[in-house]
Design a protein around this nucleic acid. Sequence first.
DNA 1: TTTTATAACTTGACTAGTCAACTGATAGTT
DNA 2: AACTATCAGTTGACTAGTCAAGTTATAAAA
Lengths: 147, 147
Amino acid sequence: MQNNTIGSLIWLRLMRFTNQSNQMSNAFLKRFGLTTAQFDALMQIRAYQPLTQMELAEKVTVTQGGISRMLERLEKEGYIVRKQDWKTKTIRLTERGEAVLELAMPEQLAFQTSFFEEVLSKEEQQTLYTLMTRVHKHSQKKELPHE
Amino acid sequence: MQNNTIGSLIWLRLMRFTNQSNQMSNAFLKRFGLTTAQFDALMQIRAYQPLTQMELAEKVTVTQGGISRMLERLEKEGYIVRKQDWKTKTIRLTERGEAVLELAMPEQLAFQTSFFEEVLSKEEQQTLYTLMTRVHKHSQKKELPHE
DNA sequence: TTTTATAACTTGACTAGTCAACTGATAGTT
DNA sequence: AACTATCAGTTGACTAGTCAAGTTATAAAA
């Protein structure tokens, strides 16, 4: 019984790294009163607003129930508003949401970036990005075709 | 306010990919009655047994409290035993734990491997592994020196 | 040999998510 | 108009983790 194909080694590294850096990022964002997941969601909203809950759920890979709860919290904090609009609810950042991003974004991006910049050359980062993009895109195709 | 350094793009890909493939893996492992985290823990125990809870917690990147709860579940399922041994508890797989791994391991490893093997050449996988290893090792150094 | 310290583990209170059943809004049919 | 279908979102019950205060086992000092 052998336990280390190259693929499984990559898998482990990825899981360990994301798990750990996610925790570090949560600690880092604490001073803005945000979690990594919330920061991520706010960024997506900023980029794609107005959008529906379904669309956001898809982008940040959580379930419909999960996004409902997450947005409830963000709304309570005053970072976003949801408004019933035809059959769906459309989500937008509030002033307050934009303000917190304005503050947190440069710092958080620098933080994220530092994980890679400090050890990889520009070309290596590009390579890593390309490889991961292929892997990620492929994994999405693996999902049971959802109809 | 720009939002896409190469580092932050890599970060996003990693988060999305691990999040999604983790969920797929949970679905995959369901027929063995295991979660991805449990499989991971059992593999580490298999490789390093006997070991203490502290050591295992470190390996699978969860807190001490988390490992305590996790092992409680695994023990209840009969996959492991903990026995007070001097000041620490040492963990070992039971027959049943070995049996479930014997069954799940080849399948799960093949599953993990498939994410990479199906889109990357051997050399590309090697490159990805090398880059991620450097990134991961670096991130561990970033942690506040824990004393 | 009681007291004090400390390392390893547990536990109560909490958080953020999952799943699947349910509710509300709109549209199409009779 | 009333009935049915369907899609978007919510919610109850649950899970797996976090954090920090509390236990327990051993060692060291008084």
